[in-house]
Design a protein around this nucleic acid. Structure first.
Length: 560
RNA sequence: CGGGGUGUGGCGCAGUUGGCUAGCGCACCAGUAUGGGGUACUGGGGGUCAUCGGUUCGAGUCCGGUCACCCCGACCA
C-alpha cells in the first residue's frame, strides 16, 4: 500500500471537544470518522485491525466448538414482546415500522431470535450441546454515548450463545468460553481481569465481566490485593462489621423533634450510625416496598432490584407514602403491613434506633425478627470506600475499568419463554440451559489503544496492527532512493508482509511523526547514506532506539 | 431526562459599541529552495458565519425558537 493513496490524513490538531486519549488518537490517525453522536465509520485502518481482532476471536471460539452464523439486525418486534424485553429494555430499543405499519426493532442483541431458531431445530438430547456465535452490528439507543468507540449506539459485537442439556453442561460451556476469552485478550495484547458482575436487564444467575483497568473506563471495580477477589462495585460484597451486644432490650419510644436524617439522629441521641436503622421506600409494580439497612451503610438499588426480582423499581412517591401513612424522617417498617427487604447488616448488631412512624418520634431497642420481620434478608448494600474483603477481611481497593467482555449464565429464562425444549434419553421433555457471551470489538480496539499508546500515537501489538510495518524513505523523489525503496517494498510484499510505503514528498519529520501516529510495530528507514552502505535502518514503535542492518539480512531479521 | 458548554472553510481559532469584498494558523493545490523528528518562502482554491424567524437603512455580531455535538449526572449487557 502506498501511503499517498491510503484513506489516511493525519490531523495536527484534534477537535477540541475530544477528551479521551484513545478517541483523540483514533481521530488524529483517521481510524474512525464520526457520523453522529455514538455513530462511527470504521475507516480502512481501523477496519483492518478490527478484522484481525475478529479473526482471533473466531479462532478461539471455534476452538471450543463454536459455529458461526449471521442473524438479521432488523427483527419483528413480536419476538421482543414475547421475551418481555420490548418493555424492559425500554428506550434503548430502536423501533421502526415498515410500510404496512408493522413494528420492528433494530436488534441490540440476539437471544430472542437465536432461541427461537434453536427451538425449531433442536428436538433431541443427541443434538446438544450447541455453541453458536456471530459477529454482527448491534444497535442500542444509549442515553449517553461517550468516549469515541467506548460507548456507542451502533457497534459490532461478537455474541455467542451456548445451549446445554443441564446445569453441569452450562457450567462447562461457561468455563470453556471464559478460558477462550482470556486467550483472546492475551492475543490482542490487552491486559484484562475477570470479575464478578451483575447480570442486569439480561437476567440470569452467574455473570462475569472482563475488564481492562483504565482511567478511561466507566466501570468501578473492587479488587482485593490479598486474595484476588474482584467484582464490579455494583455487585461487590464486603465484610460487614459486627457490633452485637449482650441481649435484646425492651422498646422505648422517645421524642426526636425535627430529626430527619441518620446523621442528625446520631448527634441528637448520642449514638453511632451503626446503632440506627435506615429505611428507604420504593415502588415496585405500584406496591410499596420498604428496604432497611443499618445506618452506617447505604442501599445499593441494583442489588435491591435483584433481591426483589424487579429491575424497574423506583423511589416511592409522596402520594404512595401518604397512602400508607408513613412520615418521612421518622419512617420504619414498624407496625406496617408492607413488604420489607432487609440488608444482612441488620443481623450484625442489635437494639437499634428506628423511626416510630409518628412524626417527631423514634424508638429505641428495635430488633429485626422481634419488632418487625423482613421477607428477604440479604446483601443490598452499597460498598463503602473503606470496605474489607468478604473473603479474607483485608482492605479492598477501587479501580476504574473498561468492560471489554461480559458472560452470563442465562439458565432457562429465554428457553422457557420460547419453548426451547428437547427430549432426553427417557423421552421426557426438558428445558435447554443457556449461556450468552459478548465482546464488543470496537470497544476492545479502543481499550487496546487506551492501554498501548504514547504522546505520538498508538503502539499496536503485532497481532492486531493494521499493517506489519511502514517504509519511510527520506527523499523518495530521488530516483535512486525511489528505485531502492520500491525494491525493498516488492521484496517484503513477495515475502507476505503487509506493508505501507510512505511515497509522499514530505520532510523526514512529517514522515516520522506520521509513522508514529500510524502505530505499526516496525518502521524501516531508507536514506541516501544507508543505501551507499547497503544498510537499512529498523526502528521499533515501542522503543526509542533503532538499529542498522545489512539489507541482505532484512528478511531474515523480520521473520524472527 | 436534569445541569453545564460549544456551533464562523477539513482542523484549531480571531472577529471591538451592529458598518465596506468575513480574517489568521494548520491542512489542500502550484512553484523554488531544503532533506534524519511536523523546514522556509512565493502564489492560489475553498466559507448560504448550525438552522429558522424577528429587530434594523444595515446582523457573524442584538432578540426569540429549533437542531446538532461535547462534558457531568440520571440511565445502561
Amino acid at each position: 500500500m502506498k501511503l499517498s493513496k491510503m484513506l489516511f490524513k493525519s490531523l495536527r490538531e484534534t477537535p477540541s471537544d475530544i477528551e479521551l486519549e484513545s478517541h483523540k488518537i483514533m481521530i488524529k490517525s483517521s481510524l474512525i470518522h464520526q457520523a453522529g453522536s455514538g455513530i462511527y465509520s470504521y475507516l480502512p485502518l481501523a477496519w483492518k485491525s478490527l478484522r484481525k481482532i475478529e479473526q482471533i476471536i473466531r479462532e478461539e471460539i471455534d476452538n471450543v466448538g463454536g459455529q458461526e452464523l449471521r442473524m438479521p439486525v432488523i427483527q419483528p418486534k413480536s419476538l421482543w414482546d414475547k421475551s418481555g424485553r420490548s418493555i424492559s429494555m425500554g428506550q434503548e430499543l430502536f423501533n421502526l415500522n415498515d410500510r404496512r405499519q408493522k413494528p420492528f426493532v433494530l436488534a441490540p442483541t440476539h437471544e430472542e431470535l437465536l432461541t427461537s431458531i434453536v427451538k425449531e431445530m433442536i428436538y433431541s438430547y443427541k443434538s446438544l450441546p450447541q455453541l453458536i456465535y456471530q459477529m454482527q452490528t448491534k444497535l442500542r439507543d444509549e442515553p449517553r454515548p461517550r468516549g469515541g468507540l467506548l460507548r456507542v449506539r451502533e457497534f459490532i459485537m461478537k455474541d455467542a450463545y451456548s445451549f446445554d442439556l443441564n446445569k453441569d453442561g452450562l457450567d462447562e460451556s461457561y468455563e470453556n468460553l471464559s478460558n477462550a476469552y482470556m486467550n483472546i485478550y492475551n492475543r490482542c495484547g490487552l491486559e484484562v481481569i475477570k470479575i464478578e458482575a451483575d447480570s442486569g436487564a439480561i437476567g440470569g444467575k452467574d455473570s462475569h465481566e472482563f475488564v481492562a483497568i483504565s482511567d478511561a473506563g466507566e466501570d468501578k471495580i473492587v479488587i482485593c490485593n490479598n486474595c484476588n477477589y474482584s467484582a464490579n462495585s455494583e455487585k461487590a460484597s464486603f465484610s460487614k462489621k459486627q457490633y452485637t451486644i449482650d441481649s435484646n432490650l425492651e422498646n422505648q419510644e422517645f421524642p426526636t423533634p425535627g430529626i430527619k436524617t441518620i446523621a442528625s439522629l446520631c448527634k441528637f441521641a448520642k449514638v453511632e450510625s451503626y446503632q440506627t436503622i435506615k429505611a428507604m421506600f420504593y415502588n415496585s409494580k405500584d406496591e410499596l416496598i420498604c428496604a432497611v439497612i443499618r445506618g452506617d451503610y447505604e442501599i445499593n438499588e441494583l442489588k435491591l432490584a435483584r433481591a426483589i426480582g424487579d429491575p424497574n423499581i423506583k423511589p416511592a412517591s409522596n402520594e404512595l407514602l401518604k397512602k400508607h401513612d408513613i412520615p418521612a424522617g421518622s419512617a420504619s417498617p414498624l407496625g406496617k403491613s408492607i413488604k420489607v427487604i432487609a440488608d444482612d447488616s441488620l443481623l450484625k448488631a442489635n437494639n437499634y434506633i428506628a423511626g416510630a412512624n409518628k412524626e417527631g418520634y423514634h424508638i429505641k431497642n428495635v430488633n429485626i425478627g422481634e419488632d418487625f420481620t423482613a421477607s428477604i434478608i440479604e446483601d443490598i448494600s452499597q460498598i463503602p470506600d473503606n470496605a474489607q474483603c468478604s473473603k479474607c477481611n483485608k482492605d479492598l481497593s477501587f479501580k476504574k475499568a473498561i468492560e471489554v467482555g461480559h458472560i452470563f449464565k442465562l439458565g432457562t429464562i429465554y428457553s422457557e419463554k420460547f419453548d426451547a425444549n428437547y427430549l432426553d434419553i427417557n423421552g421426557k421433555s426438558k428445558t435447554i440451559e443457556m449461556g450468552c457471551y459478548g465482546i464488543g470489538t470496537g470497544r476492545l480496539l479502543a481499550a487496546v489503544i487506551e492501554q498501548n499508546h504514547d504522546k505520538n500515537g498508538p503502539i499496536f501489538p503485532k497481532s492486531i496492527s493494521p499493517y506489519d510495518l511502514i517504509i519511510s524513505p527520506i527523499k523518495y523523489e530521488n530516483k535512486i532512493i525511489k528505485e531502492y525503496s520500491d525494491k525493498i517494498y516488492d521484496l517484503l510484499k513477495s515475502n507476505k508482509f503487509d506493508i505501507v510505503l510512505d511515497d509522499r514528498k514530505e520532510s523526514p519529520g512529517v514522515k516520522f511523526s506520521d509513522a508514529d501516529l500510524l502505530g505499526f510495530p516496525i518502521r524501516l528507514i531508507i536514506s541516501e547514506k544507508l543505501i551507499e552502505q547497503n544498510m537499512i535502518e529498523i526502528k521499533l514503535r515501542n522503543s526509542e532506539e533503532s538499529i542498522k542492518i545489512e539489507n541482505k539480512k532484512l528478511i531474515d531479521y523480520l521473520k524472527k
